[in-house]
Amino acid sequence: MSFTSRFALRRRGLAAAGTAAVLALALAACGSSKDSDASMPGMDHGAHPSASSSSASGMDHDHGSMPGMDHGSMGDGLADAKDGYKLTSTATELPAGKETAYKFQVAGPDGKPVTAFAVDQTKRMHFYAVRSDLTGFQHLHPSMADGTWTADLAALEPGTWRTYASFTPDSGPGKGKGFVLSRTVTVPGDAKKTSLPEAASSTEVDGYTVTVKGVLMAGMAHPATVSISKDGKPVTELQPYLDTYAHLTAFHEGDQAFAHLHPETEAKGDNGGPDLSFQAMLPKPGNWRMFLQFQTGGKLHTAALTLNVS
């Protein structure tokens, strides 16, 4: 990333500090990524992409972000409406302990369901379900028919969950602008709150060790590095997942503010890793739960890590 781009990113990040949960990420590609269960109770990536990362909807075969796509004004993802676009669903309660389909729509400024969505990281819709204590996490790529999206959720633990829809309209007044909208849904039953794990610089998932190096401060872009190893040896066979070598999202403890570290480097080849460099801007101080997804041998791994931002 050039000095000019880095400077522009810093200015945009500082302007949004305290009011938006935008993360700017420039993954320096040197590695590649498919699906597996995550390491925490109730956590599931939920999707099962092919080695080529094609969408289950059968409509997402384009690659990368669309030219002119704006992710700088996504906000913190805690509202169900923004700039005339609204996330709607008739579901206020979902069953516990079994797979279930969550249906939703995105209404445009004209009140009608939006049907034209731009491709972002090979998908037209990124959907997340996160439990209020951040112990449950699912990242899905739902299918759409006549403006209604269907996300096939894995079994949910009892409690309050927030569902996020991350998308970019491909027509209308919001064309090319990134949105993250969310709603809450209740899963009835004995909801046992799990304390967030302490902040740490590394974690393990499926035999892999994921380490984050760098000091993050609220409202400022800082360089950081994610390193992946296995059995004490650097991993150099990361596979592409969503046109990059790692997909990162983060959620703020307490209010569940959303942040996406959006990669800019397209992955090529199955020889990525072990180090992935990025510029990160987390606008709020406190604990953030980061979910790092990467693929090896056709299997997707989801690592969860608590980062403290001062």
Rank of each mutant, 00 (worst) to 15 (best):
M1T: 04
F3G: 04
T4K: 01
S5T: 05
R6Q: 02
F7P: 00
L9N: 06
A20V: 01
A21H: 10
L23D: 14
L23V: 13
L25K: 05
C30V: 06
D37C: 06
D37H: 10
M40Q: 07
P41S: 05
P49N: 12
A51D: 07
S52F: 01
S57C: 15
S65L: 12
G68V: 07
H71V: 07
A79E: 14
A81S: 15
L87M: 06
T90P: 02
G97H: 09
Y102N: 02
K103W: 01
K103R: 15
F104P: 01
D110C: 11
G111E: 12
F127N: 02
R131D: 03
S132R: 13
F137A: 02
H139K: 02
H141N: 11
M144G: 05
A145Y: 02
A145E: 11
A145H: 08
A154S: 06
A155P: 15
P158G: 01
T160N: 14
A165L: 10
S166W: 14
D170Q: 11
S171H: 07
S171D: 15
G174M: 00
V180S: 10
A191V: 00
L196N: 01
D206K: 13
V212E: 08
G214R: 07
V215H: 10
L216F: 08
P223T: 03
A224R: 11
L242I: 12
T249E: 06
F251V: 14
H252Q: 09
E253I: 02
G254E: 09
H260T: 05
H260L: 14
P274N: 13
D275C: 04
P283M: 10
K284S: 12
P285A: 03
W288T: 05
R289A: 11
K299A: 10
L305Q: 13
L307V: 13
N308V: 01
